[in-house]
């Protein structure tokens, strides 16, 4: 590309894109070695080209870029070896075609981030159907691919105003399916990270639609499995909401109390961890609204026969901010906590 006159470059760019639409079989590791290497070097050249060149993004380039990217990334994901795939325990299936796939994602991100990129032209090709196929890929077991997808969808959400509501709705659907049907989708953490950034940018006052998403989707997402997989991302989204609008504290805490795990177990330890992150940002005026039901639950945890649950609940007394809230409201909290604290003071080492 850099060896031809500038005037010929846009056409050569299109030809090289078309060349890269050819898909090789990576399961057969020994086939087409030379041609695979040739495609890899061409993709590398395209990545460099969109990064440094100017004037390459002609109107004809948009459909070609989207077509090439689509040919390469949109595919049926390999079925998981076991339906009980646990990202914490099991080794993920890594994508065999990664040497090419990685460069295609790299190229696409540089294209979306290019200074010449015009959403008004691209929206003809990057549409709802494209987004739906992209969202399906978030179920990939390969964390490297999900990381690229996260950046791609984040950029698309940022640039295509017309797709925003659609993307949020589809993410809602994936979450609801995860909670009420499958309990399986590999990319929930990555989608939550994108949502955290979206919630962070919400304008005030919050729209009813956004509040509903918090109450109807994010709170029910507090299942045991969810917390073990993406507690940090979920807490981040909730805290973003509370920092935007502290009056949401009450529905959030009441929601969490409603979804509190039934049995004393390790799950409750995670739940207490989630709750502490929320209490860290709670406003005193909101705290008084929920302190009674909240401390009734904490009192139950403190006297839990499960040693770790009791200990995790007691650990709140090491948190200076929570401690200052308790002190200020001791007239309400002490009567709730006294019996449990008195009982364990006889037998608990802490």
């Amino acid at each position: 590309l850099k060896d031809v006159p500038a005037a010929e470059q846009p056409e050569l760019f299109l030809k090289k894109l078309q060349q890269c639409s050819f898909i090789f079989d990576f399961m057969d590791t020994l086939s087409d070695l030379k041609m695979k290497e040739y495609k890899r070097s061409t993709l590398n050249e395209l990545v460099d080209y969109v990064t440094i060149s100017r004037g390459y993004l002609t109107e004809q380039a948009y459909p070609e870029v989207v077509r090439t990217v689509s040919y390469n990334i949109f595919r049926t994901l390999p079925p998981s070896d076991s339906n009980e795939f646990d990202p914490e325990e099991d080794e993920p299936t890594l994508e065999a075609s990664w040497p090419h796939l990685q460069l295609v994602y790299e190229f696409f991100i540089r294209f979306l981030e290019s200074q010449e990129f015009q959403p008004s032209i691209a929206k003809k090709y990057i549409d709802q159907k494209f987004v739906l196929q992209l969202l399906e890929l978030f179920d990939s077991e390969d964390p490297r691919e999900r990381d690229y997808l996260k950046t791609v969808l984040h950029r698309i959400y940022g640039k295509f105003l017309g797709l925003r509501a659609f993307i949020r709705k589809q993410i809602n659907n994936i979450f609801l399916r995860f909670v009420y049907e499958t309990e399986h989708f590999n990319g929930v953490a990555e989608l939550l990270e994108i949502l955290g950034s979206i919630i962070n940018g919400f304008a005030l006052p919050l729209k009813a639609e956004h509040k509903q998403f918090l109450v109807k989707v994010l709170i029910p997402l507090h299942t045991v499995r969810s917390l073990s997989l993406f507690h940090a991302q979920l807490a981040y989204c909730i805290v973003q909401f509370l920092e935007k609008d502290p009056t949401l504290t009450e529905p959030v805490i009441r929601g969490l109390l409603k979804f509190w795990p039934k049995t004393c177990s390790q799950k409750e330890v995670m739940y207490l961890g989630e709750l502490e992150e929320i209490l860290d940002v709670i406003e005193p005026s909101q705290f008084v609204k929920i302190q009674e039901p909240l401390f009734k639950q904490i009192s139950r945890c403190v006297s839990s026969p499960h040693f770790q649950v009791a200990e995790r609940a007691l650990y709140y007394w090491n948190n200076e901010y929570i401690m200052s809230l308790i002190e200020e409201n001791s007239n309400v909290i002490l009567p709730i906590m006294f019996a449990s604290l008195y009982r364990i003071s006889k037998e608990h080492w802490n």
Partner: peptide
């Protein structure tokens, strides 16, 4: 009396991405 502590502003976790500003004219 002791002064009340301010709630901690939650620090951005390592995965936090730049915020995307909401477009006020966006349809629900």
């Amino acid at each position: 009396p002791q002064k009340r502590l301010k709630p901690l502003k939650s620090p951005a976790p390592p995965f936090a991405m730049p915020p995307i500003k909401e477009d006020r004219f966006e349809k629900a």
